[in-house]
Each structure stands twice: as structure tokens, then as C-alpha cells.
């Protein structure tokens, strides 16, 4: 299969959907003339014109509010927020309007709004440009939370988001944009929400990865294999809806689970997954549920400190080995 980058896969998903459906359009800061601050929407202005690739003022609340209005009037907007850290500027629109419109209109309003946003630490971007805001919104019913970890999933999940009738927060990890992998060219290739992906099978420990931590989990699994520990790596793909069944089935097999995400550990996505497993799969657990996540401090600028705070491959390896302290 042809291989392209995560960034290209996202651009391809947007372009294909805009070609097939005239109600789909892109809006955001610098998405047009500049091609997006991460270059994701390069040359889209030339193909689709200013009506459909719209540069907006620097106001996140205006971008989301306009997106909501357009969505309720029958359009399918893709609203880009440059950094996940800035989502809070649009907090009221997202939390009180976008997420609630369907419910408070008695089901009359559809909100097919896709909010594309970058997440994660790109390296020395410091505390205001490095956060992983996934779990901030997991507590808001009405929003779907999508965390693609591979180029193919980025394309397939984004197309599902654009074609769906409900608001989606689509979190693109900055350090995955350059990641290259096989991506189907079929314009009807979609990846459904709520289906976790077992990327590597193993019998000893389940590692549930969120976004970039899936990649690190796979690297950790290679290291663990050399030590005789067979890890099963699962990419959650979507945090809301969460694929409980696949996770429980895996834990029932391995009896050990590590949840790895780049968001801060305290009340991060792993807290919800851990609680779900404690409620529904406790009899399968042969040890504690372990979370590998960023330490609970604002992300530092200093590379040394940042590396210390962020979770890495070795943290996952050590977490897995902690289940068998007797093993050397």
C-alpha cells in the first residue's frame, strides 16, 4: 500500500470530503494563505477557494461559535484550533453550546462540527503549547473525543467525524504529523468510532495507548519481548465512545494492564479507563492498574525537565516489569 504521513493523511481526508460534499468547509487561524501553522492544509486554498478555506480572526470563541451556527444551518464545518491549549478560550461555546445543542433542542438540531486541534508536546514549547486536553472534555456529554495514533486512522477517523451528525474533538498529536505509514486511497475508507485496535497481541500484559503513546507502547513491547514478557498493545482510537469490550477482553486474557497517555496523570484519560476496568473487570486483575502519564506539573520549557516530566518508552517497560518484581 502507498505510504503517506499522518499530516498528509489528514489533508487527504479533508480534501476528499470537500470534493464529495459541498457543505464541508475548513476554517481556522492561518489555514488558508499560510497553509496552516503545521502545514496540514497547504494548497487547499488554491483548490477550494476562499469561501471554503477560510482564514479567521484570532478568536477561538468566534471560530467555534461560527462553526456551531454553520453546522446547525446544514453545513459540515471543520474548525481548526491551532493548539489544544487554546480550547479553553472557546470553552463556553464548546461546553455549553456545541455539546448541548442536540439535547436542548429536543433532538431537532444536528451539530456535524469537527473541531481539529493539535495536542501533545512538540518539544520545548512550554506549558501553554504542549498540553494534552483530551480528558478536559471527556466529562462533557455530547462530545466525541478522537485520538488517532497512525496515518491510516487519522484519515479514516477524520472522515467518520466529518460525515457524522455530532460534534467531534479531533486531537492530532504534533509529534505524529511526520509519521509515515500505509493509508488506503479509497475515498470511502472510514474507521468507525468506538472500536479499539489491537496492534500487537500478547498474553502477559495489556498496554492501552492513547495517541502518541501507542507508538511508545509498541517500542516498549519490543524491549519487553526480549525479557520474556509478551505485551498486548491496544490503540483506543476514540476515548468517547470508549471500546470497553475490547479492553475488558484483553485484560481478561493478560490479567495486567498499563494505561499510557501523554496527558497529566491526575484525572487524565487513564483515570476513566482505570475506573471502568476496576468496575467491570476487577476479577481479572492480577495486580494494580498502572498509569504511565505526564507528571502532575505544568510542562517545562527546559528539554531536560520536559523529558523528565513526559512519559517515555522506559517508563512503560518499568511499569510492565513491576508486575513481576521477582524477575531480574
Amino acid at each position: 500500500m502507498r505510504e503517506i504521513s499522518y499530516s498528509e493523511a489528514i489533508r487527504e481526508a479533508m480534501c476528499e470530503e470537500m470534493r464529495r460534499d459541498p457543505t464541508v468547509f475548513l476554517m481556522g487561524e492561518d489555514v488558508g494563505v499560510f497553509g496552516g501553522v503545521w502545514g496540514v492544509s497547504h494548497d487547499m486554498l488554491a483548490e477550494f477557494g476562499e469561501e471554503r478555506v477560510r482564514d479567521t480572526p484570532i478568536s477561538e470563541i468566534a471560530i467555534i461559535g461560527a462553526g456551531l451556527g454553520a453546522a446547525m444551518m446544514g453545513m459540515r464545518p471543520i474548525a481548526e484550533i491551532m493548539f489544544g491549549d487554546f480550547l479553553m478560550c472557546a470553552g463556553d461555546q464548546i461546553v455549553n453550546q456545541v455539546a448541548k445543542a442536540r439535547f436542548m433542542s429536543g433532538g431537532k438540531a444536528q451539530v456535524p462540527l469537527t473541531i481539529r486541534v493539535t495536542t501533545g508536546a512538540p518539544g520545548s514549547a512550554a506549558a501553554q503549547h504542549s498540553q494534552s486536553p483530551e480528558s478536559w472534555f471527556m466529562n462533557i456529554p455530547g462530545l466525541k473525543i478522537v485520538v488517532p495514533a497512525t496515518p491510516a486512522d487519522a484519515k479514516g477517523l477524520l472522515k467518520t467525524a466529518i460525515r457524522g451528525e455530532d460534534p467531534v474533538i479531533f486531537l492530532e498529536h504534533k509529534m505524529l504529523y511526520g509519521e509515515v505509514g500505509p493509508v488506503p486511497e479509497d475515498e470511502n475508507f472510514v474507521v468507525p468510532f468506538g472500536q479499539a485496535n489491537i496492534i500487537r497481541e500478547g498474553k502477559d500484559v495489556t498496554i492501552v495507548g492513547v495517541s502518541i503513546m501507542v507508538k511508545k507502547a509498541l517500542q516498549a513491547a519490543d524491549v519487553l519481548a526480549k525479557e520474556g514478557i509478551e505485551a498486548e498493545v491496544i490503540d483506543v482510537r476514540t476515548l468517547v465512545p470508549l471500546d470497553r469490550e475490547t479492553l475488558i477482553r484483553s485484560v481478561a486474557k493478560t490479567n495486567h494492564v498499563i494505561i499510557a497517555h501523554e496527558a497529566h496523570k491526575r484525572a487524565g484519560p487513564g483515570a476513566e479507563i482505570a475506573a471502568m476496568l476496576a468496575e467491570d473487570a476487577v476479577e481479572y486483575l492480577d495486580g494494580p492498574i498502572v498509569r504511565v502519564a505526564a507528571k502532575n506539573v505544568p510542562l517545562p520549557y527546559s528539554p531536560v525537565l520536559e523529558n523528565y516530566v513526559l512519559p517515555n518508552v522506559n517508563d512503560i517497560v518499568e511499569a510492565a516489569k513491576s508486575f513481576w518484581p521477582g524477575k531480574a
Partner: peptide
């Protein structure tokens, strides 16, 4: 117990 924190595990 041979597990984490000395807990008894399935094995």
C-alpha cells in the same frame, strides 16, 4: 506474595 508491594498474585 510475589507481586507488586508483596501482594499475592494468581501465580
Amino acid at each position: 506474595g510475589s507481586g507488586p508491594r508483596g501482594m499475592i498474585v494468581a501465580n
